[in-house]
Design a protein around this nucleic acid. Sequence first.
DNA 1: GTCTATAATAGGATAGAC
DNA 2: GTCTATCCTATTATAGAC
Lengths: 185, 185
Amino acid sequence: MPATLQPKSQILNSLVRAFRRNGYDGASLSRLSDETGLKRASLYHHFPGGKEEMARAVLISANTNFQEAVLGALDQPGTPKQRLVAMAAALSNFYDGGKETCLLALMTTGEGREVLAPQVREGLTGWINTLASVLEQAGQPQASARERAQDAVARVQGALVLSRGLGDTKAFERLVARLPHDLLA
Amino acid sequence: MPATLQPKSQILNSLVRAFRRNGYDGASLSRLSDETGLKRASLYHHFPGGKEEMARAVLISANTNFQEAVLGALDQPGTPKQRLVAMAAALSNFYDGGKETCLLALMTTGEGREVLAPQVREGLTGWINTLASVLEQAGQPQASARERAQDAVARVQGALVLSRGLGDTKAFERLVARLPHDLLA
DNA sequence: GTCTATAATAGGATAGAC
DNA sequence: GTCTATCCTATTATAGAC
């Protein structure tokens, strides 16, 4: 029996989950099929380019989600400190308190890394640039604002690696709590 | 024709390279065979448990290499500052200036993550503990030394992710340069 | 200790019916 | 838009010769 029709956004969310849990190499078409509830051939109808096209679409989708949920907090009214605190909270929520992986980090390894590299870079630089502009608004010189923003993103990525590797999200929680203060110190 | 006999340590080094470049899922037996110069069946002679056993052995080997090359720098005579500077230099060398991946981080994803988790944790905690003990010797209270050591490891991991994702090792180089000072500040 | 040969399974992808 | 059926290749693993 055919699966019930579902909007493409819902298919994409399922694919995001699957890639996030398994990485590029681990996200086999069988798993993508199970996660979406669509047979392999149906996935090829939506994504004629196969797994590679799915991964590209997933990166675009996840990047959009991230911009709305996390970077959007930086566009709200308020002092830089308030906005950074809001971003930290959104960040914690986005990564489920450190239990979820970052798709961008995941996509830097595996078979698809070369083709996906431009989109990974775009996602990371967007994040860094948005963060840097807030720090500039807080009065930091452009060059140091940029470095701090880069370091902040690196600390988030590292905390996620450590939380996963240690099986303990304390490092991530501590980072989220300190990040707003550290960025403005 | 049979490959020339090679010591197990040399086989292991080849396997480390292959897993480091491809991750667990991407390190197929064909690639492991190519990298070692041994046919698949010969690999099963050395590692009857197959890929999983190879990954376990690779983690042990890489962990030993890391302890000797990087953590060993912390056991040399000198002030804490001098020893941390030596570690930072060894770190930069171990990760080829930010161009090489960390096997521990890589093994937190993919098919083998559950079985390899204990060894990944062991590698990370060994690193953290050694670093924390140096910070205690420098006069820091135990609790904050531990947190700082954890954060330092996280920053290294994050810098490696960022360097790979941006295709630019500046973030890693900057971290290595600042790490000794930041840890003692 | 290494090899060739082989088996069984899983992976990516396509054709064509409904 | 989804499906079944099929294809080819790659993957993991084993048996047994040398």
